[in-house]
């Protein structure tokens, strides 16, 4: 028999080691990308066009491509996701339907992203080709939108369900309609949670390669329209490394991407704190 005190100590050391290893892994990945990428990172790297077949110059088209794709994904997924969550929490009785939708959303979240890519290829690139322009930034953005939809639905759903029933009753008691209650009570209080969900989705959309690999083309021009082709930071990174074009530029791109995602995560935290405090004080 091990003495309880001893097992306590062992557990403590084990937990401490696990925590330490997470931080070490994180730091070494970040550190490695930073060391390898910092050399190519500069203002002109971000603002210039690529030259000499991506070996020199900047990555501006990919940055713009990433931004456009994320904006499209969010403009698609936010209204639908928040709308679905409002419907789930405010317009249906808790029951089989709401349970099914929640399970469906959770299952969608667990589907590998490449499967979303295949769906996007079949649906947006081939089937809706006349509207999306085939393998275009629009198709890529919509595919990512589908991918992050469950995240936005579920975070909004959770945020709205925490709004207290009695506050809603008070609002109805004062003669408010359902929509007025949603607009004045439910949405403002759920806002921090909804924003967190949107930013999480945004981070995921900007960081995914697999679902849009079918829809981009490495083209060193700034996209003129969302119905045309373009590439993103992730897909460019994939090609640069895969085809052995330039590891330096690949790491520079990776560093840019990681920086953007870290900034997004940080601002998600800040915004959540800011809005929660404003609301509760």
């Amino acid at each position: 028999m091990i003495h309880p005190n001893t097992s306590d100590k062992i557990a403590k050391i084990w937990l401490w080691l696990s925590a330490l290893s997470i931080i070490l892994v994180l730091l070494s990945i970040l550190g490695y990308v930073f060391i390898m990428g910092a050399g190519s990172l500069s203002v002109s790297f971000i603002l210039d066009m690529p030259t000499n077949n991506w070996r020199e110059g900047g990555i501006l088209p990919a940055i713009i491509g990433s931004l456009l794709v994320v904006i499209i994904a969010l403009s698609f997924a936010t209204p639908i996701g928040v709308g679905a969550a409002i419907y789930l929490t405010e317009f249906t009785k808790e029951g089989r339907l709401t349970k099914t939708v929640r399970i469906a959303a959770d299952s969608l979240n667990a589907i590998p992203s490449i499967v979303f890519g295949l769906f996007g290829l079949a649906f947006f690139v081939f089937y809706l080709k006349d509207y999306t322009g085939g393998p275009s930034l629009l198709s890529a953005g919509l595919t990512l939108g589908f991918m992050i939809l469950p995240t936005i639905i579920r975070t909004s759903d959770v945020a709205m369900r925490t709004v207290s029933f009695s506050e809603k009753m008070e609002s109805y008691g004062l003669g408010a309609t359902k929509l007025q209650t949603i607009k004045n009570i439910v949405l403002p209080e759920a806002f921090p949670g909804i924003i967190t969900g949107i930013i999480l989705g945004m981070g995921r959309a900007i960081g995914e390669t697999a679902p849009i690999i079918f829809m981009v083309s490495l083209n060193p021009v700034i996209p003129k329209t969302i119905f045309g082709s373009g590439n993103t930071l992730t897909t460019q990174l994939y090609y640069l490394a895969m085809e052995g074009i330039s590891m330096d530029v690949a790491f520079g791109t990776a560093l840019t991407l990681i920086t953007i995602i870290l900034i997004l995560n940080y601002s998600a935290r800040k915004m959540n704190n800011y809005f929660s405090r404003n609301l509760r004080r």
């Binding site: 009695s166 506050e167 009753m169 008070e170 109805y172 008691g173 004062l174 009570i185 209080e189 609301l279």
Partner: peptide, 16 residues
Amino acid sequence: LRRRVGMVFQKPNPFP
């Protein structure tokens, strides 16, 4: 109707 017949609940619930 609810505007004409107001209600004050058991537990005070000010909005945030």
